[in-house]
């Protein structure tokens, strides 16, 4: 009256195992690759963020002093009226002192020093005004020596800015 069916034996066939392993390997491969990419991306972004912060600080320090300066002494426009760039900038500040900003590629810093108008040595500021800057250039951009453009770069990040001297002589 009652029919009984034979219960199948529990187990895993080889084919199932192989297919399962293959699927798992593909999925894990995709996900792990994504994780590594994300980690690298995050590291790059935090590097970029630090570089940007360095640029902001350096630009801020330079602009604050340059805005009130009187004249750019170096670099100057070329004789054929083309721009001229250099890794150092020399200017007369509001108080008449001769100041220089210069880039040291070995230490990746922009430093400031005071050049005396008479006898005496150059006085270098103990703290740099910009750090972590791979290259910096200052470009004379106007004939009246009142405009200086600068280009900072490091690790593929760039900053282009300029300052017009409000107190020009």
């Amino acid at each position: 009256m009652f029919q009984t069916s034979e219960r199948p034996k529990a187990g895993v066939t080889l084919v199932e195992l192989l297919i399962g392993t293959a699927i798992l390997a593909v999925i894990l491969g995709i996900v792990s690759r994504w994780f590594f990419m994300q980690r690298e991306y995050q590291q790059r972004l935090s590097r970029v963020s630090e570089i940007q912060e360095d640029f902001r600080r350096a630009s801020w320090n330079m602009i604050q002093e340059l805005q009130m300066a009187r004249v750019i002494i170096w670099p100057r426009i070329n004789a054929d009226k083309s721009l001229h760039s250099d890794t150092k900038l020399v200017f007369k500040d509001f108080n008449g002192q001769i100041i220089s900003y210069y880039h040291e590629s070995a230490t990746r810093q922009i430093r400031r020093c005071v050049i005396p108008n008479g006898p005496g040595g150059v006085v270098i500021n103990p703290r740099p005004i910009g750090e972590g800057i791979a290259s910096a250039s200052f470009t004379a951009s106007s004939f009246d020596n009142r405009l200086i453009s600068f280009h900072l770069s490091s690790g593929g990040v760039h900053a282009l800015d300029a300052v017009y001297l409000l107190n020009g002589d």
Partner: peptide, 30 residues
């Protein structure tokens, strides 16, 4: 987690644009 990265990118480009605009404004004065 990627959104934090996008925020950094945005601020990179915005910071660059701000410097650009400031550069132009200074050149205009000269």
């Amino acid at each position: 987690f990627g959104s934090a990265g996008r925020a950094v990118l945005k601020s990179q480009n915005l910071g660059f644009a701000i410097g650009f605009a400031h550069r132009i404004s200074q050149h205009l004065l000269a």
